[in-house]
Design a protein around this nucleic acid. Structure first.
Lengths: 191, 191, 191, 191
DNA sequence: GATGAATGAGGGTTCATTCAT
DNA sequence: GATGAATGAACCCTCATTCAT
C-alpha cells in the first residue's frame, strides 16, 4: 500500500469516527468523503461499502481494546485494577458503533469480538477468583454488561455510570451478594 | 373515535413497538402498516408522520412510567424500594425508542419528559435522604444514569445490569463512598 | 331529488367554486367536503369523482353563459353591445376551471361547449356584419381569443385586459385592419 | 462542470420545458427523468427539488426576456416597435410556467422578475411618451396585462390574441381613449 | 488511482376513491 | 342516506453504490 493510500485511509477512518460518533451511523458516505477531503470513489476504493467502513472502524477499536487488555494484564496489579483500567480506557474508544453492526457476519470482526470477549472475561474471572468481583453473576454476563456501559454514545471515562457499575460489580467485603435485590429492597432489615 | 379506529390505532402502536424494539427506528412505515394488516393511509391518518408515531409511543411510555412512579410512591415502603420497583418496571417499557427522538421538540413529549425526570428525581432524593442511596452523585445525574440502564434495547427487569447499577447506587452501610474509584482500585489496601 | 339533497349539492358546488377559484383545481376533495360541512362520502354521492365535480361546475357555468347570451341577444341593442355585455358578464363566471378539463370527454360538457361557442360566434358574426368588429380575424378565432380573456383566474369585469381586448377587436372606424402589426410597427410612417 | 453534466442539464431543462408546457407543472419528476433518458438521481443532482427545476426554467426564461428587451432597446426604432418585437418574442418563451410559481420566494427569481418588469415598464412608458400607446392605462398595469397575453400555455407569436391586445393598446390616432367601453358600446352614436 | 456524476431502489407522504359503520 | 375511516397508487426525494472521465 502506497504512502498516500495509507494516509487517505487514515483520514477516512478518523473523519468517519468523528462523524459517526457525533451524529450516528446514519451519516452519508458522500459527507464522509467530503469531510475527508476526498471523492466518494476514493472512499469506496478503501472500503467496498458502508458496512465495510463500519466494520473496519469496529475492528480497529477492538484491536485497540485487545492491546489495552494485554497492557493491563502485563502490569503487576490486581485483576480488579486491570479491569478498572481497561474499562476506563475502552470507554474512550468508538465502540458504540459496534451496536449498528448487530447481525453482521464479517469473519475478521467476529474473530476480534471473540478474542476481545475472551480477554475481558479472563480478567473478570481472575477478579472473581481474587475475591474483588462479585460471584453471583457469571463472568460471561459481566462481560456483556460491561459492553453496555462501554458501548454507549457519549460515554466518558469519568462517567458516573462507569463508576456505579464498577462499584456494583465490586464484591462487598465480608458479605455475600446475590439475594434478589427486589426482595432485599423491601426487607425490613434494609431500612 | 369509532370502535374500529381505536382498535386499529392500538394495533398500529403494538406492531410499531414490536418492530421498532426488534429492529430499531429505521423500520419503514409501509412495513409497519403491512405488519398491522392495514394500509399506509390508515397509519398516516392516526399519526401524521413517522416522527409523530415515535413521539406517540414515547409519550405513552412516559405516561406509563409516571403511573408507575405514582403507584410506587403511594406504597408504604422506603424510597429505595420505590426506586427499585420503578426501575424494574420501566425496563419493560419501550423507552429505548426515546433515544431516536433526541432532537425532537414536541411540547407534549418535552412536558412528559420533564415530569418523568422530576418524579424519578424526587424518589432518588428521598432515597438519598433516608441514607439508602449514595450521596456522592447528584440526584440529577443519578436520574440520567438510570435512563441509560432503562432506555436500552433489550433490557429486562431481571437483567444483571439493572441489579448491578442498583447495587452500585446503594449506599454502602457504614462506609463513605466517593473516593476516586480508579486510584482506589490500584491502592494496595484493596488487595 | 329530496330537498336536503338539492341543498347539499348546492353547498358543495358553491364551496368548490370558491376554493377552486381561490387556490386552483388542486384543492383536495376532503377539504371541499369539510368546507361544505359534509363528509367526503356525501360529496362522492353527488359527484362520482373529482372530474365530475369540475365538469358539473363547468356545465353550470356554461349554462349560465348561454343564459347570458340569450339575454343579450334579446335586447334591442347592436351586436357589439351584446358582445361587450356578454364578455363582461362571463368574466365573473368560474370559467377558468374549464382549463383544467382540457382533454375531458363528457358528452354534456362537450354539447354545452359547442352551444356556447356557437352562441358567442353568432354574436361575433353579427358584430362583424354590422361593421363594429374587425373582419381580419375569423369569427371562430375571435371566440377562442375571448375564451382566453375570460377563462382566466382572477379576471374581473373592469379588468383593463378585457377593455384592451375589446378595443383591439373593435373595427377601427374608417381604416382597414389587417396588416402585419410587426411590419406595421417598424414602418416609418408610424413614427 | 463536466461536459456530460452540462449536456445532461441541458437535456433535463429541454425535456422539462417540453413536458411542463404540454401537460402542466403536475408532470412528475420520475417522468421527466425517464423522458430525459436519465435516472431521477441525476435530475436531483442538477436541481435539488422540483421547485428548483421550475424556478431554474423560469429564471432562464426571464434572462432570455431581459436579453430580448436589451436587444430591442438597442435598435433605432420607436418604442412601440420595441414593445411589439419584445412581446412577439416573449410569447415563444416558456413563461407560462411562471404561473405555477406564484408564492415562491426565490431571491434570484424575484430579482429577475423585478428587472424584467422594470425593463418592460420602461419601454411601455416610452411608448406612452411617444404617443403610440394609450395613456388611460397606467404603465404598471400594461405590464401586468401583457404578462397575461404572454404567460399563456400554447401562446404563439402569430397568435391573433397578441395582435388584438397590441392593437387594443395602441393609441388611437387623433382620438382620446378612456371612456368606459361599456357605455360607449351602447351609445347610439356607435351604431 | 482519484474524482464526482449517474443510477435507481426504497422510504416518507398525499390524496382520489371505496366501504364499513 | 350520511359519515369519515381505510385504502393504495403515485409522488417527491435520499443515499448507497457504480462508472465514465
Amino acid at each position: 500500500m502506497r504512502a498516500d493510500a495509507r494516509r487517505n485511509r487514515a483520514r477516512i477512518v478518523a473523519t468517519a469516527i468523528g462523524l459517526f460518533t457525533e451524529r450516528g451511523a446514519g451519516v452519508g458516505m458522500d459527507e464522509i468523503a467530503r469531510a475527508s477531503g476526498l471523492g466518494v470513489g476514493t472512499l469506496y476504493r478503501h472500503f467496498p461499502d458502508k458496512r465495510a467502513l463500519l466494520v473496519g472502524i469496529a475492528c480497529d477499536s477492538l484491536r485497540e481494546l485487545l492491546a489495552c487488555a494485554q497492557d493491563a494484564e502485563a502490569r503487576p496489579i490486581p485483576a480488579w485494577a486491570m479491569l478498572d483500567l481497561l474499562v476506563r480506557r475502552c470507554v474512550e474508544l468508538p465502540l458504540a458503533l459496534t451496536k449498528s453492526l448487530d447481525g453482521e457476519h464479517d469473519p475478521e470482526l467476529e474473530e476480534l469480538q471473540r478474542r476481545a470477549d475472551e480477554a475481558i472475561q479472563q480478567i473478570v474471572q481472575r477478579a472473581q477468583q481474587e475475591g474483588s468481583l462479585r460471584l453471583d453473576i457469571p463472568a460471561r454476563e459481566v462481560v456483556g454488561l460491561l459492553n453496555v456501559a462501554v458501548c454507549r454514545p457519549g460515554a466518558r471515562a469519568e462517567d458516573h455510570l462507569v463508576t456505579v457499575i464498577l462499584d456494583g460489580l465490586r464484591a462487598a467485603p465480608g458479605q455475600a451478594r446475590g439475594g434478589s435485590p427486589v426482595s432485599a429492597a423491601v426487607a425490613p432489615s434494609e431500612m
